[in-house]
Amino acid sequence: MIQDLLAPAVLIGIASSGIRLATPYLYATIGETFGQLSGVLNLGVEGIMLMGAYSGFYVTFKTGNPVLGLLAAIVVGGLMGLGMAIISVTFQAEQGISGIGVYLFGLGMSDLLFQKSLGTVETVSGFQPVEIPFLSQIPVLGQIFFRHNLLVYAAFLLVPVAWFVINKTTWGLKIQAVGQNPAAADALGVSVSAVRYATVTLGGVLSGIAGASLSIGLLNVFQQNLTSGMGFIAVALVYFGGWSPVGVLLGSLLFSLVNALQNWVQVLGIPIPSDFAVMMPYVLTILALVFAVRKVTQPAALTKPFERGEG
C-alpha cells in the first residue's frame, strides 16, 4: 500500500496537484509580503480574495471572457487594498482590527452580491490548461510543470519578479527602509505614506488575482465563502517564509504538496484515518516553523502607524 505512493504516476500526480493548490497561496502571500515589508499587516486578505473571486467569476459569467474577469478581479482587489491603505495609513487605525473588518466586509459583500446577481451556483469556462509546446512533452517534468492554466504559470513567474523588485530596485529598498525604520526613511526624503499606499494596494491586487485563480482558474465555480480560510493561511505563510518571496514559495509548496500527498494517501486506500490525513499539512507546517525555520526578525515597524515627528 505505502509503496504505491512511490509509483512514478503517483509522484507526478502529487507534484502537479501541489503546484495547482499552491497557486492561490502564491499570489496572496507575495502580495502580503510587500505590505508587511513596508510595515502594514493586512489581515483582510481572505475578504479581498473573496471579492476578487466573485468579481472575476461574475464578469466571466456575463462576458464569457476570463481575461475581462481577471481585470475585474484586479480592479476590485486594488480598490479593497486601497481601502485598507486609507484605513491603516491615513487614519492609522489598529491594523489587526481593521484587517478583520476588511475580511468581514469581503465575506458579507461577496455573498450578498452572489445571492442578488446569480442566486444559485453556476459554472463558467475560465482559464483552461495550456500545454506549453515542446516543454510539456518532456517526460515527468513536462507533466508536472507545463500543463496548467496561465494563472498557475504567472504565479510562479511572480516569485523571481518579486524577489528582484524587493532586493534589486530602489523602490524595493525604500519598502524595506519604510518597514524597518520609517523615521529614518522619512528623514531621507522617502514618503512613508506613498510607499505603504503602493504596497498595500499591490497586495490587494494580488489577493484579488488569488481569488480569481480559484473561481475562474482552478474551480470555475463561485459559492459563498469560496476561499474558506485560505487568506488566513496565506498570512501565516508570510511569517513562515520570513518575508521573502522565495520563503513564501517554499512555504506554499510545502503546505500544498502535503495536502496533495494526503489526497493520494486516501485515494490509494492507505489505512490512515482521514482525520489524521487532513491534519497533515497543518501539523507539518507548524513543525517546520518550530524546528526548521532560521531566525528571521519581522520588519521592525510592522503594525506600527507612522506619524512624522514621533519616535
Binding site: G13, S17, R20, L21, P24, L214, L218, L219, V221, Q223, N225, L226, T227, S228, G229, M230, N259, A260, N263, W264, Q266, V267, S274, D275, A277, V278, M279
Partner: peptide, 19 residues
C-alpha cells in the same frame, strides 16, 4: 473514498476529484 475534512473547502474538493 476521500474525506476532505471540511464542508466548505471547494478547492480541496476539486483537487480530490482531480486526484
Amino acid at each position: 473514498v476521500n474525506w476532505i475534512g471540511s464542508f466548505s473547502d471547494v478547492a480541496l474538493a476539486s483537487e480530490a476529484a482531480q486526484t
